[in-house]
Every structure is written in C-alpha cells, then in structure tokens.
Amino acid sequence: MAITQARARALLLTPAGLWYAALLLFPLAVVLIFSFGERNPIGGYAPGFTLEQYANLPARFAAFRNTLTLAPLGTVAALLIAYPLAYYLAIKVSVRWKTTLLILVIVPFWTSILIRSYAWIYLLGGNGIPALLEAFGLGELRLINTPFAVLVGIVYGYLPLMVFPIYVALEKLDKSLLEAASDLGAPPWRSFLQITLPMSMPGVMTGSMLVFILLTGEFLIPAILGGGKVFFVGNALVDLFLQSRNWAFGSAVAVALIVIMLIVVALYTRAVRRFGVRRDDVGLM
C-alpha cells in the first residue's frame, strides 16, 4: 500500500517536476553560473569565476531605483482602482449584469498588450488627452513619455490581474458576516474595515504579488509609454542581453533582481499576515 502510494505520488509529480526542472531550475542555474563569468569580447558569455559583475551592479542603480519605485507605486495604484471595482462586481452589481461586466474586464486581454499600449501612445500623446485638457483651458500638459504615462500603462495593463483575485475573495465572503457586524453595532464603513477588508486580504495579497512580480520584470510598457526615458531593470536586461550582449553582467543583474524580489515578497507576505487573515480562516467559508 505504501509503495503504491509512493509510486502514485511519483507519477503525479513527475511531469510538473520535470517541467520545473527544465524551465525554471535549469535556466536559473545557467543564469547563476553566467553571473560569475565574463563578457566575451565580441559579446556573449565567456567562462570564468569573478565577482566583477556583481561589483558592477551599482551601474544599474537607476534601473533598480525606477523599478522599485514604479512597481510598488503601480501595484498600489492598481489596487486602489481594482478594489472598488472588484467590490462593486462582487457585492453591489445585480446577478444579471455581473457576467457581462466581468467579461468586459477580461476583454482587453484578448488583444496583445503591445497593441493596447500603442493605443495609449495616441491617448496620452499631444493629440489625445492633453489636447482635450487644453481645449478646456487647462493649459499645456505633457503626458506621454513620462513616468506618469508608464504608471497609466501599468495600471491599465495589469488591472484585470488585480481585479480577479480580489473579486473572488469578496464573492465568497459570507454576507451574513456583514449583517452580524452591523447587528453588533458596526456602521458600514467600520464593518468594511473590520470584516470585508481583512477577509479579502488573501485576494488583495494574491493580486498585489501577481502584479508586483510581473511589474518588476516589465520592460514593454516603460519602453513604449516611457519613450525609453523611464528605464526599468527589465529594459536594462533587454539591452544587456540583446544589445550590448553582456550576458555575464546581464545574468548578475537578473540574479540581483530575483533576490530583491524574493526579499520584497517575503516582507510583504509577513506584513499582510500580521494585519490580515490566515488562509485557514478564510478557508472556513
């Protein structure tokens, strides 16, 4: 019996295990090895063992600074916009409209983010929103190719990823909990803060992590809407691997990014645990 179970487990886990080994661990190991190597004079990777690449990391300080400012900012902005939307969809809207509205949230995903970002070039460009504001006498405004434009693109592009986990968390929230809170004397805003918000924390956490992690590796939106002037680590990596072909340094930057990301995720998870809800708690419902 024990043998069969062990075999069953092996059978169940082998495909995923191989998948992870081939597509996650192996490339990670390669990146790690490369990061201690050197740049081939004509570009690419030359074997070696040096910490030079890591010592050179401050050369990409600005990229890390931009990423670690705009990624959290974008995550927070997406959260602030997504939460009310998810709340509305999960709690306020009638069943009849719910499906339609949910589909509307997904529809943009049917088009490539590249094409959608291009649409924003026009919306934020001189003939778009700034022209409209100018027509209302709000003065000249430059939006495109600014960090703000990148933020708009980021929030726009990643909003559904934030909306859905929160929506799911709120959707399964037992409405009688809110009635109980109200019954016990909590006015609506307080029952929101004390019940709804903590109960939706797992969704908030999932959405934020998803968006934050993807944003940390983002390069397309800053390139398109930042006009190349808003430089993310992702852009630095694209340049290092595809332009200057300094694979060793690129690998070191990638490793540093992964390490920073892991630290941020760990800190965030702990913080949320402290203020929010244990997954078991929510599992009760």
Partner: peptide
Amino acid sequence: AELMARFKSA
C-alpha cells in the same frame, strides 16, 4: 554599450 545604459537610466 555602458555609456548608452548610463544615458538611458540617467
């Protein structure tokens, strides 16, 4: 290449 990177991230 590095000059370009400094320029872009400045």
